[in-house]
């Protein structure tokens, strides 16, 4: 059953056009079949018809035809629940590998008819359900990540059995959207890293740390890292104050280099670097990143951190 459906999905995705940023659900890409319950209902209709024919009871005919017409109309109602719906997927918030990516799915339609019980998922099994009483809405569709890098949005399954549960209408929607998955941050367990933090030999080591001594405080400026705020000293004042570290610009910089890390496979080293970036950012240090041909100048702050993480996520040797 699942294999059959997978084959059908491949076929269905082939016959729709290349991935676009939004997809209209129409007669061409919506499929509809009775659910298990729908088949039971059809069986009920067959039983009723047999009974009506045998007993020649006209009220049994009435009931059979009435429920039969209801069955047909239910199919149209279910189909209409998704018909004309437009689906788009926005760029999700970046996550670290292993976390759950939340793809923002935007559903909109032009008609005034409310749409109910729309199920979304990556397979037949829906993960979230939503309803649109207005013309558009946004829902987050979760996806568990397992690899760092640029993740193309997999084909989503949008389905609905509203309102009677007799039919299930569904569509496979493949949209051109990418998400960034940072490496999983892993603190380097080896002593080399711990010693390297104190090593003064510059670029040969993974990181160079200096300027750790507190020279004084200055008023808080935007962009100062959280770790740099002198919380205790700020306590009595009206405004925050930041720590002023000793040492020069160059000396106060940590340089994080992929090559300098001990031997391990690439993903592990990227994970270590990721943890280092986060740790440096946390402690409010300036840090630079050297990744093969890419190098990121020393800096700190949210934007710098994001740039580094992005480089780590997209790195290819």
């Amino acid at each position: 059953m699942d294999r059959l459906e997978a084959r059908f999905q491949r076929w269905a995705l082939r016959r729709t056009a290349q991935p676009v940023t939004r997809r209209m659900l129409g007669w061409r890409n919506l499929y509809i079949l009775p659910t298990w319950f729908g088949m039971v209902f059809a069986l009920l209709l067959a039983v009723l018809l047999l009974a009506a024919l045998n007993y020649g009871a006209n009220m049994l005919f009435v009931m059979t035809f009435w429920l039969g017409a209801f069955f047909l109309l239910a199919m149209h109602r279910t189909h209409r629940n998704l018909l004309g719906l437009e689906m788009a997927i926005q760029v999700p918030q970046e996550v670290f590998c292993g976390e759950t990516l939340q793809w923002p799915v935007v559903l909109s339609h032009e008609s005034a008819r409310p749409r109910y019980s729309i199920d979304l998922g990556w397979t037949r099994r829906p993960l979230v359900a939503t309803h649109l009483e207005t013309r558009s809405g946004r829902v987050l569709l979760p996806l568990q990540t397992s690899h760092r890098g640029l993740l193309a949005c997999p084909p989503a399954v949008i389905s609905s059995t509203h309102p009677f549960g007799l039919f299930r209408v569904w569509a496979y929607v493949s949209l051109a959207q990418q998400a960034v998955v940072y490496p999983r941050p892993i603190v380097c367990p080896m002593r080399q890293w711990a010693t390297a933090m104190n090593d003064q030999e510059g670029l040969l080591t993974a990181a160079t740390v200096s300027g750790n001594e507190l020279e004084g405080v200055r008023p808080y400026q935007r962009g100062d890292a959280r770790g740099r705020i002198a919380w205790k000293r700020s306590a009595g004042r009206e405004a925050l104050v930041s720590k002023m570290m000793g040492g020069g610009e160059a000396a106060g910089t940590v340089i994080l280099s992929l090559e300098a890390l001990p031997m391990a496979d690439l993903e592990t080293r990227l994970s270590w670097l990721c943890a280092m970036v986060l740790s440096c950012e946390e402690q409010g240090m300036d840090y630079a990143l050297l990744l093969g041909k890419t190098s990121i100048a020393p800096g700190s702050g949210v934007r710098h951190c994001r740039e580094c993480l992005l480089a780590l996520a997209c790195f290819r040797p």
Partner: peptide, 8 residues
């Protein structure tokens, strides 16, 4: 308009 998921 945000659409809240009905279940997750």
């Amino acid at each position: 308009i945000p659409a809240t998921p009905i279940w997750d």
